[in-house]
Amino acid sequence: MFAAMIGLLLFLWGMAVPLSAAPAPIGPAAEQFADGARITVGLTLIAGVAGVLIGVLAGLGKLSSFWPLRWLCDSYVWLIRGTPLLLQILFVWLAFPEIMPEGIELSDFACAAIALSLNIGAYNTECVRAGILAVPHGQVEAARALGLTPFQTFMDVILPQSMRVALPALANNLASLVKDSSLAYAISVVELTMVGYRIQAESYQPIPVFITIAAIYLILTTAFTTLTAALEARLDVGQKR
């Protein structure tokens, strides 16, 4: 797990070095490729972490016995899953400045991160909910009978056990996020796809440029998949086989 993470970081920071040895149009633009990849990974990591938090909170909310909360979480998932991600990104970018209090300004990057977090959060909500429902009720009763509070029961018993069930689906969502983050180009965030678009426009050589971009995406998705697979293996203890 840590090997995959360190590999990813080394790749990001060291990428410009080998790339700069490549012939034009790749070599001269090596720094731009590296910057673009860092933005893509930044968006993925921020939205990935925020998306899990949102997924856990909204997944719990969907199971709440308090109907307004349940209704709120249901509507959130319905709204996000029923509209295009591009629209959501544009909405945050154009509408948030109007509803934010004076003096608070969001960067384009922050807008993209918020929209992506809300998007993946909605998809995660369903996975987390299914995971929580898969925890046998006897586990909760045992924890409560021992005197654990509802919060301790959730943190120590329900959450780890539901994550074991939800993780493969959450990992899937994360892998999609690496690619979905490319839509941030629409609000002028210079992520990887945008970098490729610009460089091919300057060099008139789309084929080598897009092959390079595709290769970088493949390395990133593979790194994230390795990371989540290692996490799955760690959580997979004590399971029936």
Binding site: Q139, A142, A143, L146, L148, Q152, D156, L235, V237, Q239
Partner: peptide, 24 residues
């Protein structure tokens, strides 16, 4: 003590026994 044991399946035997004294 329950009919179906209800041990915490994600924790070792030692942690199963130690959890409540630590938390509660």
């Amino acid at each position: 003590v329950f009919q179906s044991f209800n041990l915490f399946s994600h924790l070792t035997i030692l942690r199963n026994v130690a959890l409540a004294p630590m938390r509660v």
